[in-house]
């Protein structure tokens, strides 16, 4: 729905060729260890997991901790045997969900 997540990858790749997937998601990553101006700790509010799948099959996932910087950036290499829609899904505290998609053709 909302424009919160970004995924970048080449639009077409060769079968088995290693390419880079780069992702960004808008999120404050509030650690839960930080006092607010009233001196009390601001409750934790983080993205806990991002997962990347191709047409429903999960290919990569990362569990995140409060140590991941605000507006999390994650990049990793990938190879594909067939093309499809690469979907990135982020989930986190307080029911946070975001999604981004990119179509990749395999030659």
């Amino acid at each position: 729905m909302s424009a919160r997540g970004l995924v970048s990858a080449p639009a077409r790749v060769k079968r088995g060729e290693v390419f880079e997937v780069k992702t960004l998601v808008a999120h404050p990553m509030e650690t839960g260890f930080r006092p607010g101006f009233d001196g009390r700790l601001i409750p934790r509010d983080i993205v806990t997991r991002m997962a990347v799948s191709l047409d429903g099959a999960e290919l990569f996932a990362m569990e995140m901790s409060p140590a991941i910087a605000a507006n999390p950036y994650v990049a990793f290499p990938m190879t594909l045997e067939k093309g499809g829609v690469l979907t990135v899904e982020w989930r986190g505290d307080n029911g946070f969900v975001a999604e981004a998609r990119i179509a990749i053709a395999v030659a």
Partner: peptide, 17 residues
């Protein structure tokens, strides 16, 4: 330099919407 890594791209995305 890299739009795919520059966090400001998240604001550009929101601006496009």
């Amino acid at each position: 330099d890299d739009d795919a890594a520059n966090p400001a791209s998240l604001w550009v995305l929101e601006g496009s919407a």
